[in-house]
């Protein structure tokens, strides 16, 4: 029963990690941006969903929608106000731009985190789940919300796959990650592709934030940890590789769950960090990294 419990719990959390990391890695692959305000944007989505569903009494569906919409808005704001000015600035040398983007998004994330703590307190919020109740899976009592979390994560990832592989805009996105220069020569406007990738990112981070808020609950204090976990997954999977991130999300999710169940919940993230150090030593390009 316990192995099955680990299997089920690990699957749910891993799926959520996968969803959270997908947008993060896609953005790096396409535009070379590592957005360190990632966790804060997820938290914003969850807190707004909680606020709209509860305080404004709009119900869980409108709450979830508002959360995702807010994440999308904040993704655009992050790009327009923080990232793009740095990328376009003539006074920052080209080779230092990545560092400036990292620092800029990191500080922006801290600002968002503090703003949430100020407006809504740093107490964890839990988004009302879309479906409540539990089902027995071979003797393991599983909240329906947990199954829903995994299912919705995979639906979102599936839709992303369709978008990237089956639409013209998606193909352009993929091309931009491989050869941005070639794409501009073909007459595509890179800036539009960047807007698209930020839009996709915002929606994915929003869904991940709302689901996390409904599954485990989210506090503004979690913003840093959420960024760190997305970052670890992406480094482990190979920077910019979406399929690498998906695999890495499951490695991280299961390793954490296994540790929490069999060793101690308090050192849950430790083995992942050790693994990360080992990966950096042995295979710095990550599981499926292109380098």
């Amino acid at each position: 029963m316990r192995p099955l419990q680990i299997l089920i719990d690990g699957f749910a959390i891993s799926s959520l990690y996968a969803l959270g990391a997908t947008g993060f890695t896609l953005m790096f692959g396409v535009s070379g941006v590592l957005n360190l305000s990632h966790g804060a944007i997820m938290v914003v989505a969850a807190v707004i969903a909680w606020y709209v569903a509860g305080d404004l009494a709009a119900g869980p569906y409108w709450g979830a929608l508002a959360g995702v919409a807010t994440a999308l808005a904040f993704a655009f704001i992050t790009y327009r106000v923080i990232v793009r000015p740095i990328q376009n600035s003539p006074s920052i040398p080209r080779e230092e731009k990545e560092i400036f983007v990292l620092t800029g998004t990191l500080l922006w994330g801290i600002m968002l985190q503090e703003a949430i703590a100020y407006l809504f307190t740093n107490n964890p919020k839990t988004v009302r789940p879309l479906i409540t109740g539990v089902v027995e899976i071979l003797g393991v009592r599983t909240p329906i919300n947990e199954i829903l979390t995994a299912a919705l994560s995979w639906i979102a990832i599936g839709l992303l796959w369709l978008l990237v592989n089956r639409t013209r805009a998606g193909k352009a996105l993929l091309a931009a990650s491989i050869n941005p220069r070639g794409l501009t020569l073909l007459g595509f406007e890179l800036s539009r592709i960047y807007w698209l990738v930020w839009a996709i990112y915002g929606v994915l981070a929003g869904i991940a934030g709302v689901l996390l808020g409904a599954f485990l609950g989210v506090s503004s204090d979690n913003a840093g940890t959420l960024t760190a976990s997305a970052f670890s997954i992406v480094v482990l999977g190979g920077l910019g590789s979406v399929s690498g991130s998906l695999i890495a999300a499951y490695v991280v999710g299961y390793l954490e769950t296994l540790t929490a169940y069999t060793v101690a919940p308090s050192i849950r993230t430790l083995p992942v960090l050790l693994l990360l150090v080992a990966v950096v030593y042995v295979r710095p390009q990550g599981l499926l990294g292109r380098r």
Binding site: R2, Q5, D9, I13, N123, P124, K125, T126, L216, G217, S219, N222, T225, T257, A260, Y261, P265, S266, R268
Partner: peptide, 30 residues
């Protein structure tokens, strides 16, 4: 710092106690 309490509740449930006696202040909602 715990955010996922499932393993803890799982362990407690396995012991079949009649009651959980809590001492929590920094955590609570989750």
């Amino acid at each position: 710092d715990t955010t996922d309490f499932t393993p803890i509740f799982n362990k407690i449930e396995g012991l079949k106690p009649d009651v959980i006696i809590t001492g929590i202040s920094h955590v609570g909602v989750q």
